[in-house]
Nucleic acid binder design. Sequence first.
DNA 1: GGGAGTGACTTGTTTACCTCA
DNA 2: GCTGAGGTAAACAAGTCACTC
Length: 264
Amino acid sequence: MFEDQTIIHGEYSYCPTSEAFDSNSHHEATFSSSNNSSSSSGVVLGTTRKKKSKNNKRRFSDGQIKSLESMFASETRLEPRKKLQLATELGLQPRQVAIWFQNKRARWKSKQLERDCSILLANYNTLASRFEALKKEKQGLVLQLQKLNADLVQSSKGTDNDKDSGSGKPTESISEANKPSLSSLEKSERVLGVLSDDDISMKAEYDFGGGVLEPAEEAELLSMNMAEPAADSSLTSPEDWGSLNSETLFDESTGGYQWWDFWS
DNA sequence: GGGAGTGACTTGTTTACCTCA
DNA sequence: GCTGAGGTAAACAAGTCACTC
């Protein structure tokens, strides 16, 4: 973070007019700017903050802003040497360049947080609605499975009766073996990757629990799924928020793998 | 008149360097 | 000469003010 400290000390010890007026010195300073080459700000600060002159032409020119923006695009933190160079090129005080970069970083971070927040909200809503749709689809499939199961039992009973009437052989072992019990179905579903452990426990609710989940339970389940923290907890630490690249995370235009494709 | 944008400032923190016992 | 404590300077983030448009 402060890897350029050595340079800074060496450089600014010979340049008292630049960063020596840094606000961090906590001294009030008389600040005379060569800003915009056409006017001088002439801002004098006393022990308390004073209003600046109305004649103070404070806005940087379009050219200055353009240069600062392009430099910021390449690096959000300026090396002292580059700061001096840029300040000289633009006819600004190094301190003005430093403050511009500080403000830019702060306001860019704020906007980035807003963007990320809205993107996360939108994707949460998409995910939640998709979850609901999948849940309904799953309910339909479970019902279908139950019906097929019942049909299978029915048909096996019919064939067993035919055999029984002919041989008089005990049928219990045969019927038990042929009976497509739920556990065997579940096993086959698991082999096919249709059901997970959680699915089976949910399915048990559907099949044996006497019906579907209560709305409150559904909501809880939904919230539990949605609130599950990321494995790397990259979004749990504010330190990492700034590094969240929403463009690459959520940009559908890239055509790359999307995290919610897991649901497909 | 009020809100958004922006340049500058204040305050507190972190880090590296220097001095001295 | 080495070491730890204290002082200092510089940079930064966060919050804010003052001003312009």
